[in-house]
Design a protein around this nucleic acid. Sequence first.
DNA 1: TCTGGGGTCCTAGGACCC
DNA 2: TCTGGGGTCCTAGGACCC
Length: 416
Amino acid sequence: MFALVDGNNFYASCERIFQPRLRGVPLVVLSNNDGCAIARTAEAKALGIKMGQPAHELKLLVKHQGLQMRSANFALYGDISARVVGILRDEAPRVEVYSIDESFLDMTGIRDREAFAHRLRNKVHRWTGIPNCIGIGPTKTLAKAANRAAKSGAGVIDLSDETRRTEVLATFPTTELWGVGGRWGLRLANMGITTAAQLRDAPPDTILGEFGVTLARTQRELQGHPCIELEEVAPDKQQIMVSRSFAERVEDHAAVGQALATFAVRACEKLRRDGLVTGAVGIFALSDRFRAELPQHAPSRSINMPSATDDSRLVASVVAQLLRGMLKPGIGYKKAGVTLMDLSRPEQRQGDLFTPAVAGNAALMATLDGINRKFGRGVAGLGATGWKTRPDWGMRQNLLSPNYTTRAADLPLLHC
DNA sequence: TCTGGGGTCCTAGGACCC
DNA sequence: TCTGGGGTCCTAGGACCC
């Protein structure tokens, strides 16, 4: 038996914790670069704002409907998320952190599941300020569906009872199921399958043949047969990507190079945090695809490293080599990124006769990470990043809230 | 003027091996 | 006139997730 705990409108709820004036009013949190809405409060949804809607389309709502907008503040959301997870780990024997705002719990051995869930839900809300819902079911897919159903007011829904389950699934749209996106939803609808109950009861051979094992698994889970286990320990990542859209179109190749160096450094920080090394490095750049009338260019290149590494300097120099001659003059680039692939644990790496298995200066990187941990990200780094506080490729974040929980200088009291 | 940033898994087809 | 069978690995594309 599984439970899924999910923070309601998580990013928006995080903003509301420390800014009471945002409570009860429509609020959206914007993507990086203040591009589009990625979280909406109930009041914002009621105004008809869609997920992913561009920010510039919301101007009138700001003016006339009191809509509030905030730039994404991932430092804040990550910290609040960790506090929520801390509570869950105190209360449940086994927890899988599924995303920044969702965790699966193993409910095995918990007697009165609904009472437990109600208590947990209130505790998370009281201790962190994050409103949340809990769905319970014999499979992860059913726990997800229960959670979705709980959002419409109940707060907690338990689908372990079969009659209750059929009742809920009969009106549950397939497209809201975990594992069914827009494409499959359309194809299913063309076959006359629009509800979760219909998918559950469809001929398994048809589902397997038409859609493959992924949807067949979802169908089995809907029937109450667990196919997806709880993953308490996250498996090692297979790739790490750092990419950003730029605030402006950038024609200066040196500036793109500095952006890529910055992304390479960030990617290596993640790599070292996870205790991994990379065996292959890729870069890409994209012109402004929303300006069809402008000349377009979307180059990408990648290369295998002679030795695996987690050393920012080695990766940054490979990135610089890859970039040489990749960009075209006269193109305005809007986005770029660095991808680290072929990741592994250094001890699993095998060298050959001529090259060591792992290259780089571990002590130097540990020192670098230590300095940045103590004094703030970006205090020490590589010159290739350009070292500008406001580079022209930087993000737009005009509506950023303070880092209330992770930066002493941002504490509201200190402003008084 | 303005449209995010991460990830994973599955499948089919081609290259290549013995 | 004739050209097998079985396997692995890699890649691209498509689908999904938050």
